[in-house]
Simulated scan of single mutants.
Amino acid sequence: MNEEEVRQVVSDALERVAEEDADLLEYDVNERSITHKLAVYLREEVDEEWDVDVEYNRVGEDDVSKAIPMEYLKSKISDDVDPEDLDAKTVYPDVIVHKRGEHYENLLVIETKKSGSSGEYDREKLTAYVEELEYDFGVFVTLSVGGQGEDSPYDCDWYPFEE
């Protein structure tokens, strides 16, 4: 899939979340509930050759992970990120479009954050996924929750991010 097709697929899937699952955004439910629905709609939009997964942590049968070590991320983020949020040993992408079992058949990585939350840490994670795990495309999605998104229920910021 080319960039235009990927952007359209993401837009279409996010529109379905906004239309068919508006209550998830309105009630400000857990981010995983929203990203699950996003993944369901992405699965319906992408070619059959691709798999869509939420918080995926493996490459085939080997003990190889599609995750980024936390130590790597700690070296990349600024001092204003709360250290209490950095206790995990590895982090996993919110949603990916890839080929299971193929370490470098990675089409798209999506990191999401609900409105009202800082996204710096998630942008750093997304940058690491694209650069270290060779995803073709990456997008940071801000989801407007609790009635905060009067103009749009979501906002997309595509990698590479502008300063």
Rank of each mutant, 00 (worst) to 15 (best):
V145K: 01
S115I: 10
I34Q: 00
H98E: 02
V145G: 05
Y41Q: 08
N2G: 14
L38M: 15
L73K: 10
E31Q: 10
E71M: 07
S33Y: 07
E45G: 03
K76V: 05
P69D: 03
D12I: 09
V29L: 11
V109F: 02
W50T: 06
S115K: 13
E131T: 14
K66V: 03
A39C: 08
K89R: 12
K76E: 13
I68T: 06
E71R: 11
A128E: 02
V95E: 04
D21L: 02
D21M: 04
D51E: 11
V10F: 00
Y121S: 05
R100H: 06
T90I: 11
D53A: 12
K113C: 07
V40F: 15
V52F: 04
E48N: 10
K89I: 03
R100T: 05
E20P: 04
D136H: 13
L126E: 08
K89P: 04
A22C: 04
G146H: 01
I96S: 06
E31C: 00
S75N: 15
V9H: 06
C156L: 07
E55Y: 08
V6L: 00
Y56W: 14
T112N: 12
L14F: 04
D47S: 15
D80E: 10
E150Q: 01
D63H: 15
K89V: 07
E120D: 13
G146A: 08
W158M: 03
I34T: 11
V29E: 05
E102T: 07
A22I: 08
Y121L: 15
W158S: 00
H103A: 14
D157N: 12
C156A: 05
L42D: 12
E131G: 12
G101D: 04
S75K: 15
H36S: 14
T142F: 02
D87H: 11
E131Q: 14
F161C: 09
F137V: 02
D155G: 00
Y92V: 02
E49R: 13
L133V: 03
T127R: 15
E71I: 03
S152D: 11
N57K: 12
L86H: 03
E132M: 03
D12N: 13
R58D: 13
E120A: 12
R16K: 14
V91W: 09
V46F: 10
E132S: 11
V40Q: 15
V54Y: 02
D87M: 07
H36L: 15
H103I: 00
E19Y: 09
E26H: 12
L86C: 08
V64A: 12
N57S: 13
N30E: 11
A13C: 04
I68V: 14
V54C: 14
P83N: 00
V130D: 05
E48W: 05
N57W: 08
G116Q: 08
E15H: 13
L133A: 02
V97Q: 05
L133R: 13
S65F: 03
D53G: 06
H98Q: 02
E131L: 12
D63Q: 14
Y135G: 01
E84I: 06
R7F: 07
E132P: 01
L14A: 05
K125Y: 11
E20G: 07
S144W: 04
A22F: 10
V95I: 10
G138I: 08
E15I: 13
V29T: 15
K114P: 03
V145A: 08
E61K: 14
K99M: 09
Y159D: 01
V54R: 13
E71C: 03
S75Y: 09
S152R: 09
G149L: 00
D53E: 14
L143A: 07
R16N: 06
L133G: 02
V97D: 07
